[in-house]
């Protein structure tokens, strides 16, 4: 299985990511997930999230997850991009692309990788709240 993992402080350029990756003739499913920063959290206006990663460990834990995903499902490729630094509301914070022969395994693997990422990959986020206007 081909795999790539990128932590980046640059904006996630989804069209460029998609254009730069070809799929084989045996690939029947290409699942792309983009996670974006919401502009509210618990009803409170949010300007941005500041992401911090422990880079070496984050890459290592992502690698472990992708190996486990490959053991669970017949996947052709998985690509992961996760932002670090300041990500404004509306911008993408994570992008995952899973390619397989059939949709069931691609969808299942994509969801599983996201769930496990939130459990084991050392990345944290700090909310930047919209300033409260004084009355």
């Amino acid at each position: 299985m081909k795999r790539s993992i990128l932590l980046t402080a640059d904006p996630i350029d989804e069209p460029a990511l998609t254009a730069g990756r070809s799929v084989s003739a045996t690939a029947g499913a290409v699942v792309c997930f983009t996670g974006c920063v919401r502009n509210r959290e618990a009803e409170r206006p949010l300007v941005a999230l500041e992401y911090e990663a422990f880079p070496a460990m984050a890459i290592r834990q992502f690698e472990r997850l992708l190996v486990q995903a490959e053991e669970r499902w017949p996947l052709e490729s998985v690509d992961v991009v996760h932002r670090t630094g300041l990500v404004r509301a509306g911008e993408a914070s994570v992008w995952i692309r899973v390619v397989s022969s059939h949709r069931a395994e691609a969808l299942a693997a994509c969801g599983w990788i996201l769930d496990e990422m939130k459990r084991v990959v050392p990345i944290w986020k700090r909310p930047i709240w919209e300033p409260v206007a004084n009355p």
Binding site: G35, Y51, H82, L114, M117, K118, R119, V121, I123, W124
Partner: peptide
């Protein structure tokens, strides 16, 4: 390394 629960995504 010592850290709080992770929050990626």
């Amino acid at each position: 390394s010592l850290f709080p629960p992770v929050q990626g995504g």
